[in-house]
Structures are given as structure tokens and as C-alpha cells.
């Protein structure tokens, strides 16, 4: 219709009016939408709209889903960065008031708490008193566990309960594990440092151990490392105890009689047991001690090697008895993997 109007300026104005028309129409629906939001109340307030509810519920579901992945971590960090100082500040400001609930504690409450604390205090004090002993014991057990790992044998841990008196000239000790723990006679006994001895005889709950320092003890020994003559290592001999723990100059030392008389091991060489790994009395590869000196006896043209044992026989406490892997025991067995079974 406006196209039929003769003058272009008029047409323009009409077009502008037409364009203006929809503009005011747009505003009206917005207001109506506003009023419809109030759900038939004329008070100007608006009730909740279902679409918003659904959208926000879906937002919650999205959040929960997103939180299964680490996507939300930056958001958590950001909120934490902002809110943490506020929380700290609020807690600081409110500190005088946060003590208020304590004002309502009764005397009986306080007295009860005092009794509790005193009991706890005495318990803790007792724990502190035995803590050094406990720590030493733990270290011993740990060394046994480590030994089982190093040696590759299963061990039954046991504690030394009695030392044979020196006047019997037998170097024996009693341990608190017996046949019930899977121990048989002739089994090897080790500490975390090395070979200690072998089991002589067993009762149900205890066993007697012959230490390698006993004069009657003979252990097959093999020297590690090359000797002075450039010979191959692995010289084999017999390790004998001196029978003396303290007093003489050779106290606590062992002697090694090498089968090859000409071999001369170096000072500091390690001596380990030899055997077949399963058979008693001694399994192979247990460290015994290190060479301290070598001297030749002119009279019988033999060579004697002195060995300082790794184990301190004066302070034996926790020892391990080498047992077969599938041993049934009434106590925990330390497996070669260093675990308790």
C-alpha cells in the first residue's frame, strides 16, 4: 500500500513507522512475559519457572558428571584461593566467640576430662619409657626381615631367651621357638648381620642353638674375592670357633683352615657358608665374617686364616631360623620376599 503513495519521503516515513511498530510490540511481550512469570498473581512477584528449574537441575547433573573427571579441579582451586583467606579471616575474627560453647561445660565434665587426660598422660609416659627398647626391638625385627630378603631364605623369627654359661665351655643359646614353629634340628640360625649358629635340638616351644664360636662348631666356609697369588676366589675351607667369647686376644674370632694350603686370602675378604642350599646343617651363601689376618704354621705347613664374625655374639637378641619355604609355623614366617606369612 505504501508503495502506491506518491512521494518517496512519505513512503520512507511510513516505512519507519512500520519498523517502529514491531519494536513497541517487542516490548509488550516482554512485559507480558514478566507478568506471566508471576503466575497469575498481581503482586509483582514471580513464582519459579519450570524451565529454569529443569535447566538448573540439568546443570547439577552436569556438574556431578564433570566431577567424575578432573575437569573441575581448576574451579575447586580457584574457589579455594578466594574463599580460604576469607575463611581464615572469619575464623580469626570469630575466635573469641567460638569458645562460647566451652562456657557451658560443667565441673563434672571438666573433672571427667581431667581424669581422662591423666590416664592418657600416664599411658603415654609409659610408652615413652619403653620406646627405646621397642625401637631397638623393631630394628632387630626389621634386620631379620631384611636378612630374609637378602639371603633368599624363609626365616622364622625367634628371640634368644638364655645363654649357656661360659664355664661349660659350650657356646649355646636357647631361643623361644621350637618344633611348633616349624624348627627342626640342624637348621641354620642367622641374625641381620650373618650366620649365628645351628639348631642342636628342639623341644615343642624352644630350641638350643650351637653358636659358630663354639669350639666344637665346624662350618664349611668359602672365601669371596681373589687372593694375593692371583688365584680365583672361592677358596673352600672349614671355619672353626675358638670357644672363647671374651678375655683372650683371639676372643670371638673364628679360624678358617683352607683346603688349598697355598691360598692366601686378603684381609677384608668375606667368608660365606657353602652347602647345597637345602640340606642341613648349613645352607649356602650365609655371610660368616671377614678375614682379619693370615698366618702360616711352619710346623705342620698349613695356613690359618683368622675371621672376625659379623655377628656380635655378646648381644644376640632377635634371630631368624632358616626354614624351608613351605614350613607350617605357629608364628609368622618371614618369606624371602620380606613379607610376613
Amino acid at each position: 500500500m505504501s508503495l502506491l503513495s506518491p512521494r518517496p519521503s512519505e513512503r520512507l516515513r511510513k516505512g519507519m513507522e512500520q519498523r517502529k511498530g514491531p519494536k513497541s510490540m517487542v516490548r509488550r511481550p516482554r512485559e507480558r512475559l514478566n507478568r506471566r512469570g508471576s503466575l497469575e498473581t498481581s503482586s509483582g512477584g514471580s513464582g519459579p519457572k519450570r524451565s529454569w528449574l529443569i535447566v538448573l537441575i540439568l546443570c547439577c547433573a552436569t556438574l556431578a558428571t564433570l566431577d567424575q573427571t578432573p575437569v573441575l579441579e581448576p574451579a575447586r582451586t580457584a574457589v579455594g584461593e578466594v574463599l580460604s583467606p576469607l575463611e581464615t579471616g572469619a575464623a580469626m575474627v570469630a575466635r573469641p566467640f567460638t569458645g562460647i560453647p566451652e562456657w557451658f561445660d560443667t565441673r563434672d565434665d571438666l573433672r571427667e576430662r581431667l581424669a581422662e587426660l591423666e590416664a592418657e598422660n600416664s599411658t603415654l609416659r609409659r610408652q615413652v619409657e619403653v620406646t627405646d627398647y621397642g625401637r631397638a626391638k623393631l630394628a632387630e625385627y626389621e634386620s631379620i626381615t631384611r636378612a630374609a630378603e637378602d639371603l633368599g631364605y624363609a626365616l622364622v623369627p625367634a628371640r634368644v631367651t638364655a645363654f649357656g654359661p661360659a664355664q661349660t665351655f659350650n657356646r649355646t643359646v636357647t631361643i623361644d621357638a621350637g618344633s611348633a614353629a616349624g624348627i627342626r634340628s640342624d637348621m641354620s640360625v642367622v641374625t641381620g648381620d650373618g650366620l649365628a649358629g645351628r639348631v642342636l635340638r628342639v623341644t615343642k616351644t624352644s630350641a638350643t642353638v650351637l653358636l659358630i664360636v663354639d669350639a666344637a662348631s665346624v662350618v664349611g666356609g668359602r672365601v669371596g674375592g681373589a687372593d694375593t697369588g692371583g688365584k680365583k676366589s672361592g677358596q673352600v675351607g672349614m671355619v672353626r670357633g675358638s670357644g672363647v667369647v671374651a678375655g683372650r686376644s683371639d676372643a670371638g674370632l673364628l679360624t678358617l683352615d683352607l683346603i688349598d694350603q697355598s691360598a692366601a686370602p686378603l684381609k677384608g675378604d668375606t667368608v660365606v657358608t657353602w652347602g647345597d642350599g637345602r640340606a642341613a646343617p648349613y645352607v649356602s651363601g650365609l655371610p660368616i665374617g671377614e678375614v682379619t689376618d693370615t698366618f702360616a704354621s711352619v710346623r705342620d705347613s698349613s695356613r690359618t686364616v683368622r675371621i672376625k664374625p659379623y655377628v656380635d655374639f655378646g648381644s644376640l637378641d632377635v634371630v631368624g631360623v632358616v626354614v624351608p619355604n613351605d614350613t607350617l609355623s605357629d608364628r609368622a614366617v618371614v618369606t624371602p620376599e620380606g613379607e610376613l606369612r
Partner: peptide, 11 residues
């Protein structure tokens, strides 16, 4: 999202 919270967000 505030710091001590460790539950699934959105709850």
C-alpha cells in the same frame, strides 16, 4: 567447590 568439600560437585 569451597575448600574442605571433597564430595561430588553438584550435590
Amino acid at each position: 567447590l569451597a575448600p574442605p568439600a571433597d564430595h561430588t560437585a553438584g550435590r
